[in-house]
Design a protein around this nucleic acid. Structure first.
Length: 520
RNA sequence: GGUCCCUUCGUCUAUCGGUUAGGACGAGAGAUUUUCAUUCUCUAAAGAGGAGUUCGACUCUCCUAGGGACUACCA
């Protein structure tokens, strides 16, 4: 086969938000293109005017922008193979339909949708093909004068592909090998619709891929059954020698139960199936997005890449650049992959903890704001800023070794709220509280309040100097009860550090509150 | 119903005829931590079933079962 430049495309139809499976298909196209120094084309397949959804196109572009998948040409990216929106290519399709018609590869059919429905009801497994087209109203059964007259009158008609039966059509798939289908099971597909004066996917797809010099078609498995039809179309046009190579990707399946991943699964199980939040313009319904859920784009990309492909070894955390190097279509799996959103969260955790301290600040800001911690006056703002830095330090841990169990920025609040808010009640059922707050704990706390109230230096060292001797003398081990008082739960940093952070006043306040509202 | 595709731990997967079938997520146990989290260690967990081919099969072939996709004037 002649060597030619790798050119691949991702061609969604703007019928709504971009499905996460589509994101993966685009990603694989991107990896393949970049690895071979080729081009990635962004084409909009809007040949179904009835399903057009305003805003969908912009949404898709924004999503890829967020994810870091860059296109070389296409809608909004430019290029010299345009236009890249199929609705703007009517004249081109008309021209090529005529070529097929003139060469007896296609014919005109006048059967109305109602007539077809009737046929389907009458005849079991009715299919418009070589065995039935002789009894339908088309340019094969009507004489030419009649056909011309009907066209002149403006009778609606479609153009159908004339499939010769009884031929084994071989599709060479980069992932699945040779797939053979007999042409007799294919129907005479509508190539050009009367309803909206636009071609169907099949025709537009072949014409565009040819004209845009696409070398490889990497798409979802749902297209495999119609791949033989596409091969036949390339042949009918005489383009067989430059026909792209096919690769049909396995589907993304529901995490539980059967079937492919759908929009509703996400809503039901609480994970997004769209990259960005989507507001449906008609129903007003909102579908959650990975970006808004707090996912990092790198994590989404990494997770998605491994659903159906792997580098052949144990490597899991990979950058886009690394994946470009390692990607291999022949290493793609053939079977559908269940969508494991728990592992998606783990990937996000991995990327989140790699972030430097400073990167946490904006996300943390947002979390605090959502929970009502917001400074108004300048002085307060400074205090909150300092607190945040301290808390980020705690969250980040020492030397990046003590990362907290955080998959999303929103996980920060339950982990750090005690820095900002004093306990207001104590859960008597809480295991930690029950274990560490006993009959005489209130008395012991009172003693401790007295000791702490008497010290000047409330630093970690200052506290230790007062508390440690007292603890040793009395035999009281106050730390866990102290934690109950200051945190209200069995979590948080070292107690002296926490107390120093909160300051003497707040520390004593919380202790007195716990004594009065004894969590017994 | 028809056509095609697929089938290794619960999940994602490695293995391209010879392995104690490996890794990761999740689960469980233990150690560390004054708490939690981290970290570390460990454990359980798989070749759908049946025939072949072969000295030898997870790997090749066939059958069965199961799953999936497609079967529109949608993509």
């Amino acid at each position: 086969m002649a060597e030619r430049k790798v050119r691949v495309r991702f061609a969604p139809s703007p019928t709504g938000p971009l499905h996460i499976g589509g994101v993966r298909t685009a990603l694989y196209n991107y990896l393949f293109a970049k690895q071979h120094g080729g081009d990635l084309i962004f084409r909009i397949e809007d040949t179904d005017s009835t399903r057009f959804v305003p805003g969908a196109e912009d949404y898709i572009i924004e999503a890829f922008n967020w994810l870091g998948i860059k296109f070389d040409e296409g809608v909004s990216f430019g290029g010299d193979h345009g236009p890249y929106r199929q609705s703007e290519r009517r004249d081109i399709y008309r021209k090529y339909v005529k070529v097929l018609l003139d060469n007896d590869k296609a014919y005109i059919a006048f059967d109305t949708p109602e007539e077809l429905d009737k046929k389907r009801a009458e005849i079991e497994n009715f299919q418009y093909d070589a065995s039935t087209r002789g009894m339908m109203r088309n340019s094969l059964t009507l004489d030419k004068a009649e056909v011309d007259a009907m066209i002149a009158e403006g009778t609606p008609y479609v153009v159908r592909f004339k499939i010769e039966p009884g031929r084994d059509v071989v599709v060479n798939d980069l992932i699945r090998g040779e797939v053979t289908i007999n042409s007799s099971i294919l129907d005479d597909k509508v190539l050009y619709k009367s309803a909206d004066d636009l071609p169907t996917y099949h025709l537009a797809n072949i014409v565009d891929d040819h004209l845009m010099e696409v070398s490889h078609v990497i798409r979802g498995e749902e297209w495999l059954p119609s791949a033989p039809l596409h091969v036949l179309l390339y042949e009918a046009f005489g383009w067989a020698d430059t026909m792209p190579q096919f690769a049909h990707l396995p589907l993304l399946l529901k995490p539980i139960g059967n079937g492919k991943l759908s929009k509703r699964d996400g809503d039901k199980l609480g994970f997004p199936v769209f990259p960005l939040e989507w507001h449906d313009p008609k129903s007003g319904a909102i579908s959650s997005g990975y970006r808004e859920k707090g996912y990092l784009p790198e994590a989404v990309i990494n997770f998605l890449a491994l659903l159906g492909w792997n580098p052949g070894n144990d490597l899991e955390i990979m950058s886009l650049e690394e994946m470009v190097q390692l990607f291999d279509l022949s290493k793609c799996s053939k079977a559908g992959a269940k969508f494991d959103y728990v592992k998606a969260a783990w990937f996000n955790h991995q990327y989140l903890i790699q972030q430097p301290d400073i990167a946490w600040a904006p996300a943390f800001d947002k979390v605090l704001k959502e929970n009502g911690i917001e400074a108004t006056a300048d002085q307060e703002a400074e205090v909150v800023r300092m607190m945040k830095l301290k808390v980020i330090e705690y969250v980040d841990g020492l030397g990046n070794k003590k990362k907290r169990n955080i998959s999303f920025a929103s996980d920060l609040w339950p982990l750090t709220k005690f820095f900002f808010v004093a306990p207001t009640e104590f859960d008597k059922e809480d295991k930690f509280i029950r274990k560490n707050w006993k009959e005489n704990t209130a008395d012991e706390m009172q003693q401790m309040v007295t000791v702490l109230a008497g010290i000047e230096d409330f630093s970690v060292e200052g506290q230790k100097a007062a508390i440690d001797p007292w603890a040793e003398q009395t035999g009281i081990k106050p730390w866990n009860a102290w934690r109950v008082a200051l945190v209200g739960a069995g979590q948080g940093p070292d107690m002296y550090e926490l107390a120093a952070f909160l300051g003497k006043e707040e520390t004593l306040k919380r202790m007195r509150f716990a004594i009065e509202n004894s969590p017994l």
